[in-house]
Design a protein around this nucleic acid. Structure first.
Lengths: 251, 251
DNA sequence: GCCACGTTGCGGCGAGCGCCGAACTATCGC
DNA sequence: GCGATAGTTCGGCGCTCGCCGCAACGTGGC
């Protein structure tokens, strides 16, 4: 019987096929844990409804939960799941575009400039980082993507330790940026870099969402370490980029 | 609105959430084009039902179709979709195992030894190839996986031309083998290697499925090129491998 | 101890969807 | 041309599943 993988596939797909559950997962792509109530409000459903959905997602191995007092915190189960959700959300239906007439305005502006994408940096800043690494030949994009020897050394020097290569998570991975339509750096190195940038105050979280802003040490650090002029980058937001469509959001 | 990626995710997930459509996609993982009727019989549904499902999968960008006379041939839309389906089907639900008491017997034996997985080789043979490449330092598995310089040269020599690195498909990629529970080689190199092995008669297709057998030139070629003793490999099928569970099938 | 709040379980309603059979169209072989 | 075969379209049936409101439970603050 060829039914064993079929049930595995339909089980996972079925969990993500519902709008409410999908909204939960996309929200959790910010890499942090949310409470059941927060997710219910975020998706606009009753708490009881959210509770049932969460139970199913946990049982299906998509989410991991943790109880703290009267709160139920959930987060994505692991990076593999996060990657899967990213990949699926990035899959384009074939052409004949349903006229999506959205434009990146208002609060979306912050997300377009910089945000977290599960555990690494995305948005114009994330793309700029990936570009800077490539320009300096620390990152090589030939077939796939990989750090050069110089790149691994640079990373070790920056973080104060060689990047952890435990597990099967690739050091470098490309993640297509939805707002920029260009790839930014994901993988273990992308996560380490993002963690470092948050710890060192290069970037700070804006509010409770996924948006990032430049932190107190960011201007100097990005210039010194990667030769990125964040002021110019921010100004470049005023003049829309080439062929940037109205499509925005998660990345 | 955070709804744009949500509909993208639910649309794709919804397509894969149905058992019949999932069976279609898993069958198409062999990388070849099937007719609508073949898929209908394979999944055990009426032709009319299959027709509707196929139309939806095509409209959703999961499958590509091609009409030839009175036949409608469909195949997976691209490697990204194939990879996604592999990844999703490989996702394990958390523990507490539903007592799956399957054993690799009968016709499944052939699949366990060697088969195609979308466009590359899987099964014990596929794993042996990946191991041989690693042993000879042509392939490096450190963080992620990559060909060494010697490996690229070896590949170019074997194929008579440098491996095509066009497009964004990585040269080397790991694909978890479901029967062996160990990774085999996928990516552009895995596909090129499989194509070469079929062309040169190292392996041949068994029947109309995904199963592969050793071809007339296979014994000599695998020994010469990769130092793999296929006879010993086939004999090793008699003694079950360490901790090989009953789970079998697609990979 | 008491109340507020976050969360869970249950009953019931309504919509969506997968299934089939029957009728119809298109292609192939003779 | 004619029958056989592959595929599509349509109507209708039945089941699943997402939703809510209400009641109940546990935790934390006073």
């Amino acid at each position: 019987m060829t039914t064993a993988p079929r049930i595995a596939l339909t089980r996972l797909a079925g969990l993500l096929a519902d709008g409410t559950r999908a909204a939960f997962c996309l929200a959790l792509l910010d890499g942090r844990a949310w409470t059941a109530g927060e997710l219910a409000r975020h998706a606009g459903v009753a708490p009881s409804t959210a509770s049932e959905h969460l139970s199913r997602l946990v049982a299906g191995g998509v989410l991991a939960e943790e109880h703290q007092g009267r709160h139920r915190y959930v987060r994505l189960a692991d990076v593999a799941v996060a990657q899967l959700i990213e990949d699926m959300a990035a899959h384009d239906p074939p052409a004949d575009p349903p006229p999506t007439t959205l434009r990146a305005t208002g609060s979306r502006r912050a997300l377009t400039f910089a945000r977290t994408c599960y555990d690494h940096m995305a948005g114009r800043l994330g793309v700029a980082v990936a570009d800077a690494l490539t320009r300096r030949r620390l990152l090589e994009r030939d077939a796939g993507i990989a750090f050069t020897e110089a790149g691994v050394a640079w990373l070790a020097d920056l973080l104060g330790e060689p990047p952890a290569t435990t597990g099967r998570r690739p050091l470098a991975r490309l993640c297509l940026d939805w707002t920029e339509r260009r790839p930014h750096l994901a993988g273990a190195a992308g996560a380490a870099l993002c963690r470092h940038a948050l710890n060192e105050g290069w970037v700070t979280r804006i509010g409770s969402g996924r948006a990032l802003g430049i932190g107190p040490t960011g201007g100097e650090a990005f210039s010194r370490v990667l030769d990125i002029d964040v002021v110019a980058l921010k100004l470049s937001m005023e003049t829309p980029m080439t062929s940037s469509s109205g499509r925005a959001d998660t990345a």
